[in-house]
């Protein structure tokens, strides 16, 4: 899923300061699962903002609505009724959701309530970890199913570097060394020999360094 976390309250309050009526929009997909932008979080954030305004004596109204996905136009259409009644939208979707709402309703400011961080999964309850960086040229077949692009702090293709210690990355003891994991996994798969081959320099043009990426399926286009 896409992982995102709520922006600091202070930042959100500064963003909405100029507006009198704000629609807080949740998304029922990734950010619901990572507990940062679903219906429940919309309720909590709106309630918090209401209280904060009440303490400061600000007049501001909040409307709450959560849609199935903020990254598909059909669902965003469902916001129209509420969007027409407010003067700003605070999206608790990922960056894609914010942009898509802004594209559909170009007349109204759409503000990001979340910081979108990565593609990952919950590794344990309450912890979400990044596991893929969307590099556009997947090499998981060569690395025992562990991504060194997203999970090695230096994106090494021929790790582990000299900072790997006891399975931890040099950047922090909280971070597993991706290459230590690769080593362990390939060992189990009986494929350690493949680590002796030099993996050539990566082609980063597919990883976003060649400009924004686009997938086109002619067979599906109208």
């Amino acid at each position: 899923m896409i992982i995102a976390e709520q922006k600091p309250l202070k930042e959100i309050r500064e963003m909405i300061a100029p507006y009198k009526k704000v629609l807080v929009v949740g998304c029922g997909t990734c950010v619901t699962v990572c507990l940062s932008g679903g219906e429940k979080e919309v309720g909590v954030l709106a309630s918090t903002l209401r209280l904060a305004d009440a303490v400061d004596g600000n007049e501001r109204e909040f409307v709450e609505q959560t849609i199935t996905r903020q990254c598909e136009d059909e669902f965003i259409e469902q916001l129209r009724g509420n969007v027409e009644k407010v003067d700003a939208v605070l999206s608790l979707g990922c960056g894609v959701g914010v942009q898509d709402i802004a594209a559909i309703f170009p007349e109204i400011p759409v503000l990001p309530g979340l910081n979108t961080t990565s593609f990952g999964r919950p590794s344990e309850q309450g912890v979400w970890v990044e596991e893929c960086a969307g590099c556009g040229d997947c090499i998981l077949d060569e690395t025992g199913g562990i991504c060194p692009i997203a999970r090695c702090a230096k994106n090494l293709l021929n790790g582990p570097c000299g900072g790997s210690h006891g399975g931890k990355c040099e950047i922090s003891d909280d971070t597993p060394c991706a290459w230590a994991l690769v080593y362990e996994r390939l060992g189990r798969l009986g494929k350690l020999k493949t680590l002796e081959e030099i993996k050539p320099a990566k082609n980063w043009s597919t990883a976003g360094h060649g400009g924004p990426r686009k997938m086109v399926r002619e067979d599906l286009r109208k």
């Binding site: 570097c161 900072g163 790997s164 080593y183 680590l195 030099i198």
Partner: peptide, 17 residues
């Protein structure tokens, strides 16, 4: 090369690379 980094068994092989 760091002979003291882990995994130790792989360090000489990595030197080979």
């Amino acid at each position: 090369e760091n002979p003291f980094a882990d995994p130790f068994e792989f360090r000489a092989l990595r030197l080979g690379k």
